[in-house]
Design a protein around this nucleic acid. Structure first.
Lengths: 195, 195, 195, 195
DNA sequence: CATGAATGAGAGTTCATTCAT
DNA sequence: GATGAATGAACTCTCATTCAT
């Protein structure tokens, strides 16, 4: 059973997540968070003593429940194509909801100090995609490709869209292009009907 | 002939460019700019009355001298491959100097209001790459590709790298991957020796 | 037999004595005392509802166990010289441990309100020294002196040293000077070997 | 001609002197000083960025115009007795106006950090009185005394009175006692009519 | 035009104090 | 009684912005 303190803490994290996602890191003040969490100054401060600390707690939390990491599925022997399609679907979904993404906040946060956590996220992304592509190639499902190159395209095209889509309206077609392109690079079949 | 006022204005723009590139938009204060431009408060205010106004002037300026817009070169009948290689070289160079990029500042700026200018940049990018690819296909230099898809990959992979490279150390290989990948999509030849 | 409440109360007084002695009155917060007494906010408040109240309780306590008041000894007919020497030894000891003294805290406390207790301390000091000197003169042990004047010197030179020694390092010689001087004023003999 | 900034600075010093003298160091906030100096927050902060810094400036200023340092007068060959009487008169005056004294503030200030300035004040006091007494003894005006001892008595009895008189009402007699006592220690003549 | 002292709003932070458990 | 989470007032400090010189 989590204590009251624990619950308030979680509540603050959730409430401030929305703020950071919407407005980035630098614009958010402790006061904003007080209001969002319906808490007094002192109350908030007894849990987190700066936006930086709070934001780190959020990243920590995200880090723990990291959604898709392929490894389990690969161990279960699920087909690479299936894993890929699921991953691409998730990516599309995330690109479609960039307003819920911490990307901008992360950039601002990292820009003014610690980057360790960011590098960690980056490494994890690289590793899991590299593993998947190799898995697919070994199983003969994926074409032989320059793995590092494809991973780079996957990661950064995705990031690029996530960032821009906060700012310029992005069509479904554009978002689907990314997934479509990635799939074509890897899968031999003639068509990907996602587009 | 530019007046003294004009010169001071330009000087302020240059000085603050560096600040915005390094620290993004939100962190920069009028005070920082006074110091960077070696100007008194009043002096600065007689030219620009907010960081927003100043930043818009910078964007305006960038917009005007937009470096590569292909059109001239296409009109001159230069080969699509040549134009492409030049553009990719420029992109690589820019990715290698992300610390000089306003990307982060633009995102923050846009995040808190006007996005018109950002959309304009975006449109311009799309348009010129679309034009180039079609030009290349018409001349038989480029493969038949899904133009919109390739343009999407080009623009956003590039943006993604530009953002991340501020934060995580990025290898030459990673950066070259982007250019290499794009070229492979478009050019029939077996090899691209940029990598 | 003292109740648990009584014991906690005493414990708080002792713990906070150290704080007041070291840092004076104004700097000490209820929070500091909570920590020093290892007590929760609510716990502390159920005993004392302000630093002022707490400090007054400390003064009260000191007042009760007032260490040297001569009177008993004078009644027992002990020689004035002996009483004096003992008192001077105690004074020296106290001057040597000014960090344990509440002087600074008392000044600050008094400076912001009630001075009754302070006046009381002062009166007591004057009275007991006056009594001792008269006792010594009557017994022919002490020289005929201007009693009020000597008492003034005794009390304030002592206080002066106690205050300054918190701040500037004070030599043994300096401290002994005070006792030596007082003794010379009162005792006929040529030499005082305390120095 | 002193600049406007310089004038404001001096004005702040004067205004805050009164506050520190009356209430000590710790109780005074920047806000109090704003009000006393009739200045806005920002205005005050552009001159001094903490009460500590401000207080140090006050001490600095006092240090420079140090009122009585005997040396000039000794060089002019003025009689030791005259110098002494003038000094004692000044001391009496200061003891009578303890509410204008920074003593308490100095103790509090020193108690929470730097003591260098305090030691300096102390050293200066010792040095000048030592010089005067030796001067007087050389001229045959003063009795042969233990110089260090008398200096100790002078300095600390004076300090003691200055502190206590903020808190307990002090009679003229008490204050004069100090001067009277010092004079008797030094001067051979039978009578000092200050009392 | 430029200067820089000054204003004042507002963010960050700390605590005395209360109160449900 | 004790606990400690929460409140809210007050303080420190920073800047955008103004304005007399």
């Amino acid at each position: 059973m989590s204590s009251k303190k624990e619950k308030t803490r979680e509540f603050i994290l959730d409430a401030s997540y929305a703020l950071f996602a919407k407005q980035g890191f630098n614009r958010i003040t402790m006061k904003d968070i007080c209001e969002a969490a319906n808490l007094s100054r002192g109350g908030l401060y007894s849990h987190f003593s700066s936006t930086r600390e709070l934001f780190e707690a959020i990243l920590e939390k995200i880090n723990q429940k990291e959604e898709m990491n392929f490894y389990e599925e690969m161990e279960q022997g699920i087909s690479a194509t299936q894993i890929l399609d699921k991953a691409l679907a998730l990516m599309e979904d995330e690109m479609n909801h960039a307003e819920d993404s911490l990307s901008l906040a992360m950039y601002e946060y990292a820009g003014s100090g610690e980057t360790v956590l960011m590098e960690h996220f980056n490494k994890m992304g690289e590793a899991k995609w590299t593993a998947l592509i190799q898995y697919g190639m070994e199983r003969g499902e994926f074409q032989r490709v320059n793995v590092a190159e494809i991973v780079t395209i996957i990661l950064y095209a995705y990031q690029g869209v996530r960032m821009w889509s906060r700012i310029v309206p992005m069509t479904q077609e554009t978002i689907q292009s990314i997934a479509s392109h990635i799939r074509k690079q890897l899968i031999k079949e003639k068509k990907y009907n996602g587009i």
